[in-house]
Each structure stands twice: as C-alpha cells, then as structure tokens.
C-alpha cells in the first residue's frame, strides 16, 4: 500500500505543477545535460524535495537558492517542495530514506543529525539507507561569549571551568545535536566541567547569552552572525578560518584539535538507479561550481562548501564512528 501511495504522490504532484510547466519551459529533451553512455530518460516528471525543517528555515532557504540553479541546468522538470517536520528532522530524514527509489524524491539531510538520531533516539532510518548526492553547506560551530565578557580566549573559558567545576553555564541547542557533540568533544579533550543548559532554538539561546543567563554558548556561524555585534566569538571549530569571521582563530591554530560542524547535503534512497544518482551528482556539482550560485549563497549568509557524493558518504560514516565512540564514553548510549 505504502509503495502505491508514494507513486501516486508523485502523480498528484505532476498534476499540481502542470500549470507551471504549461506556462514555461517549452524545450525539453534537447537540453538534457547527461554525459552517461546510455540515454537516460530522467527526469520526466517533477522531483519531490523533502525538507525536514519548517518552510522559511535555513535548510529551506538553501534549497530554494539551489532550486533556482536546478531550473537553469535541468529546465525540463521543477522541484516540488514538501515539508515533513518533527522530532528535530528525524521524520523528514526517514521519509527520504524510505521513499520510492525512482529518483523522484530527493531529501535534504543534516549531519550529525542523521548520525545521532538513529544511534540515540531510535529514529527509523540509518545512514546506510541513502545514496549521497553532495554536501552543499558546512556550517562550523563557534564558541561565543558576550561582548563585555571577562573571557578573551577559549583557553580562559576552559581554565575557569576547570577551576570552578559546574559553575560555568554553557548553552547548547538540542541534545544529540551538533552542539551537544562539540560540547562532549570539548569536555573529552580539555577536561572542562560546565553545566549544560539546553535550548530549543538559536533564537532563545542567543537571547539567553546576551541577557546574561548563560556565560558562554556553542553556536553555528549562520546563527551568531545575526547578533555578532553584541558577541565576542572566541574560536571556530573548523579546519580553516571562515570568510564570514576572518579575525576569529580556529581551535586548531591555537592548539586544540577540534573540528565540529553541521553539514547539509542531499540524498536519494539507496536503491536508486546508479545512472540517476550519477546524473544528480553531476548536476549538483555544476550548480556548486556556478559563480552566481556561490554569490547568492554568500549573500544569504550560507557557508557554502561543496563535497562530492562519494566523499560525503565517507565523511558521514567517519562521523558515525566518532559519535559512537564519544557517546559510549559518556555513557549516553549502551
């Protein structure tokens, strides 16, 4: 039954955007940008794009920018957005994992969410359910304090926390999230002992930091940029400095091997025809090489970073191993 429903979802989707396709895009097959040997007849109907977060959110905006360039390179069929939200994205990620593997359902996924949710929260998908198309965003985490804070480097924070166990109030967004992993990493590598305060979203976390409820917070570039005038960013957990915050040192260059980030990418179900996967990988690469796309992403404050599907696959599995080790160490999973 479920299988039939999925097919018919797509058919219903076709009807839905028929009005759109009738008005524009007269040219069809001649523009198919495929280099594969056998002639690939894809896509012949609109492609569902499953977003696991609310419309208008960061994930949605990124995908909407991408959509503009998909229409440029694959003008014959549009994307149809479907927002399947809930449980921190787990519901939408599961939908992308269990969709009909015909190439007509692409899902936006976040790492480490797709690693942690099946591991710790019983989410009903696994990282092996996907064929990875590309990574498109790498949003590194930073350690931030108020502008008037007495802490001037991340080492100050660690020293204070070690000298006063449980006294430092450190805010993160969500448990079993990218922030949580960075906190565990920090505790593991430095021996700091802060009190963790869990917030629902970046909005109330930022407000809590600025209002003095917490002393220090872990945030993503995309979120701290909005209140950057009132904050002091101590360090960034990335391999290299960010073009958004060129003056902020990385943990690595100041002596701590810590890289922690949230990455966004796109996937299709594992069993999808390899030719279609290849087509999508090629198309996404073209989009990511487009200078206009990169400019649009920069303007929207999205830390764009492309990684090929093959590499993204390896990266996700490496993250999986790392997370398993860390969570076991802190006895958060059995």
């Amino acid at each position: 039954m479920k299988k039939g429903r999925k097919i018919l979802t797509a058919i219903a989707g076709t009807a839905l955007v028929l009005s759109l396709t009738l008005t524009g895009c007269g040219t069809t097959q001649s523009l198919t940008p495929t280099d594969t040997a056998k002639k690939l007849n894809y896509p012949t109907k609109p492609v569902n794009m499953v977003i696991a977060f609310t419309a208008g959110g960061s994930s949605d905006i990124q995908a909407r920018i991408m959509q503009k360039y998909w229409n440029k390179y694959v003008p014959q069929q549009p994307w149809v957005f479907k927002y399947t939200t809930g449980a921190g994205g787990a519901i939408g990620f599961a939908e992308a994992a269990h969709a009909q593997p015909d190439g007509y359902t692409i899902g936006g996924v976040n790492v480490p969410h797709i690693v942690l949710q099946p591991m710790a929260q019983g989410a009903q998908f696994s990282i092996d359910d996907y064929a990875y198309i590309a990574q498109v965003v790498n949003d590194p985490q930073v350690l931030a304090v108020r502008k008037d804070s007495k802490f001037n480097s991340w080492k100050d924070v660690i020293d204070y926390s070690k000298a006063n166990p449980d006294k430092l109030k450190l805010g993160i967004v969500g448990t079993f999230s990218g922030h949580h992993m960075m906190l565990l990493d920090l505790e593991d590598k430095t021996g700091m002992k802060p009190t963790q305060v869990v917030y629902k979203g970046a909005a109330d976390q930022n407000a809590a930091l600025l209002g003095g409820e917490i002393d220090v917070m872990i945030g993503n570039i995309n979120d701290v940029m909005r209140s950057v005038d009132q904050m002091k960013i101590l360090a960034i957990a990335a391999d290299k400095r960010s073009s958004f915050l060129p003056d902020v040192p990385t943990f690595k260059e100041t002596g701590l091997d810590l890289v922690s980030d949230i990455r966004r990418g796109f996937v299709v179900p594992k069993k999808t025809d390899p030719q279609i996967v290849q087509f999508l990988r090629d198309t996404f690469k073209k989009i990511n090489d487009d200078a206009d796309y990169i400019a649009d992403m920069k303007k929207a404050g999205q830390p764009q970073e492309y990684m090929s599907g093959e590499d993204f696959d390896k990266f996700v599995h490496a993250q999986n191993a790392h997370a398993k080790e860390l969570l076991t160490k802190f006895k958060l999973i059995k």
């Binding site: 609310t54 419309a55 208008g56 959110g57 960061s58 949605d60 905006i61 909407r64 920018i65 909005a203 909005r226 303007k299 929207a300 404050g301």
Partner: peptide
C-alpha cells in the same frame, strides 16, 4: 523568524 530568513536571503 521566517521574515528574518527572507531578510537574510536578500543579504
């Protein structure tokens, strides 16, 4: 939050 997203998308 969504209106802010729209602002950000316009840079």
């Amino acid at each position: 939050a969504i209106i802010m997203g729209a602002l950000l998308a316009h840079g």
